[in-house]
């Protein structure tokens, strides 16, 4: 996935300018930085949710699975964890295949992969933050992606659950060569897992090592891959 000479933002309000960014297949990129620095804008631009103000975006054959912030996934009616995955997966499925039992088996497999099959029949609204996050991750896997984009997957969950989510993503990255890019404020769970740390602040994006990343000091020049 590549952004070239890209300007990112909303309706003429530029957040990041002249950005060159390349994420290769199999990378594990953690995106951090202060609030309002443009982390989520960058993730949403990569995913195609926000159009570029300037420059080019090449997804290079990547098919994205997206995990939005938990707050965006509240559903006002009763819905089970399994149905959350089922709804998500049906987005691109031909209509006749949505009735197939084997698809249902695949959705259960996605939940199992994320250690969420135990509460497949439970009401999504009654699950804890960590459980919900695993269900949303299972949903993103159900669209059969080769890259995962996650917007603050560890927000609002305890440290132990953050570690579980980090290990889960590490396993997907290692075993399935799944590309992962995520926005977070909690970096420690990803120490030793992420291949790149990208700090987004003051209109710039820089790849840093973990030490510089956590204290916010740049030690490498502007972005590359």
């Amino acid at each position: 996935m590549e952004l070239q000479q890209a300007s990112l933002g909303y309706r003429g309000n530029t957040v990041l300018e002249n950005l060159d960014l390349k994420i290769a297949a199999g990378d594990f990129v953690v995106i951090g930085g202060p609030n309002g620095g443009g982390k989520s804008t960058l993730l949403k631009t990569i995913s195609g949710l926000i159009p570029l103000l300037k420059g080019t975006r090449d997804v290079g054959g990547m098919k994205f699975g997206y995990v939005p912030q938990q707050a965006a996934s509240d559903v006002p009616l009763p819905i089970t964890a399994f149905e959350i995955v089922e709804l998500g997966a049906s987005a691109l499925l031909p209509l006749h295949r949505t009735f197939f039992r084997m698809e249902r088996a695949f959705y259960l497999e996605c939940l199992r992969e994320c250690q969420a099959d135990a509460y497949a029949k439970k009401n999504f609204g009654e699950l804890s933050g960590g459980q919900r996050q695993r269900v949303l991750l299972a949903r993103s896997l159900a669209v059969r992606p080769n890259a995962l984009l996650l917007d603050e997957p560890t927000a609002g969950v305890d440290h132990a659950t953050q570690l579980v989510i980090a290990r889960l993503l590490a396993r997907l990255n290692r075993e399935q060569r799944m590309t992962v890019a995520l926005v977070t404020h909690e970096f420690e769970p990803f120490r030793g897992i992420a291949s790149h740390f990208l700090r987004v602040a003051d209109g710039r994006a820089q790849f840093l090592d973990i030490a510089a990343f956590t204290n916010g000091t740049a030690n490498t020049p502007n972005v590359g891959s």
Binding site: G48, L49, P68, G88, A91, V143
Partner: peptide, 10 residues
Amino acid sequence: TDPDFATVSG
């Protein structure tokens, strides 16, 4: 329920 996820998924 989730227009962002739906859009990214195609």
